[in-house]
């Protein structure tokens, strides 16, 4: 046998030069890997290059100006930025604590037989397309919200102008009965990001080592004290990371916001019950029929700002989640 086999070395056949196909295979997969990088570069280039005209025209002061009139080429991004931040902020304010409580329930308190089905239900909530959240918001939640929440509150607060109360005052540009506004967008976004925050909280709580819990129980802590001081404070970086990922999702969400936020593009109203606009919604609603190249370029600039914010937020969140899932210092894992 040995005599018939070809020699191991010295032969420079094509087969060997390409390492029996491994070399092309490596380059092929590498090519597709590079393609993934190329996609990111393409996105970055498009939003950078596409917004060049607007950047040259306005500079960064544009971000804090009000006004929106494509016919006169009068643009200001502040309503969109304010609407995005306010609605996402409301969403985080509602969904953050709720999501952590759900995570605690799923990881610490839930009977074992319920864990799987409950987690599955929460995941299903995350799978429902956002357009259906928006639609449900319009047809079902807004009528309920206007009747039982918005009208009583605005009646109570009236036309207050001092800062914290003015957030809840009666809106000026549209009657409160129209329903659509920043507050409702925040609530719908909260429902949407709740599963994200709950799932990540559960994941980081589950990996908290048991000795943390035992140590606190051993000194006579109640169950909640054990959870608060032992588990949540141990995993707080991960929980914050989960909240930031949820916030990133809320910032970038287009459809649900577009459908319920009300499209007030010109000014910022002090009341949260008043309509507003979010960056993503503004881009989605105007870019397909942009009037001029400056109009399109302005919209792309807003997209660029949104992209930048979500990227920074996600990078920070991933660092936190990654850090906590390795444990403090990367060594303590029971």
């Amino acid at each position: 046998m040995a005599s018939q086999a070809e020699p191991l070395s010295g032969l420079k056949t094509f087969q060997r030069r390409i390492e029996h196909g491994d070399l092309p295979f490596r380059y092929l997969t590498m090519f597709f890997g590079l393609l993934v990088i190329l996609l990111v570069v393409a996105i970055g280039w498009v939003v950078w290059d596409g917004s060049a005209e607007a950047r040259a025209e306005f500079g960064f002061g544009f971000l804090f100006q009000e006004g929106w009139n494509p016919v006169n080429n009068n643009y200001g991004a502040w309503p969109a930025i304010y609407g995005t931040l306010a609605s996402s902020g409301i969403a985080l304010l509602i969904a953050g604590p709720l999501g952590v409580l759900i995570g605690v329930f799923l990881s610490e308190l839930c009977p074992f037989s319920l864990r799987m089905p409950l987690s599955f239900l929460v995941e299903l909530l995350a799978a429902i397309p956002s357009v259906i959240y928006g639609m449900w918001g319009i047809f079902v939640f807004i009528p309920f919200f206007v009747k039982y929440i918005a009208i009583p509150i605005t009646d109570l607060v009236g036309n207050a102008t001092t800062f914290p109360l003015s957030l809840l005052s009666a809106p000026q540009t549209a009657p409160v009965t129209s329903g659509r506004g920043i507050m409702i967008a925040g609530i719908i976004l909260a429902i949407m990001i709740l599963p994200t925050i709950a799932a990540i909280s559960r994941d980081v709580l589950v990996v908290v080592p048991n000795h943390q819990r035992e140590a606190l129980l051993a000194v006579g802590a109640t169950r909640w004290e054990m959870i608060w001081k032992g588990v949540i404070s141990y995993a707080r970086a991960g929980i914050v990371g989960g909240m930031m990922l949820g916030l990133g999702r809320a910032l970038g969400e287009t459809m649900a916001a577009l459908m319920v936020i009300g499209s007030l593009k010109k000014t910022v109203e002090s009341s949260l019950f008043a309509p507003g606009i979010s960056a993503a919604a503004l881009v989605a609603s105007e870019l397909p029929n942009a009037d001029s190249s400056l109009h399109a370029s302005t919209l792309i600039l807003i997209a660029l700002v949104l992209f930048g914010i979500t990227l920074l937020l996600n990078a920070a969140a991933r660092l936190l989640v990654w850090h906590v899932s390795r444990g403090p210092g990367g060594n303590v894992r029971a």
Binding site: L8, S9, G10, K12, H20
Partner: peptide, 13 residues
């Protein structure tokens, strides 16, 4: 044959 020769082919080996 030296399997660690520079041009030896580990796959054939």
């Amino acid at each position: 044959e030296n399997v660690y020769a520079a041009d030896a082919d580990p796959i054939m080996l």
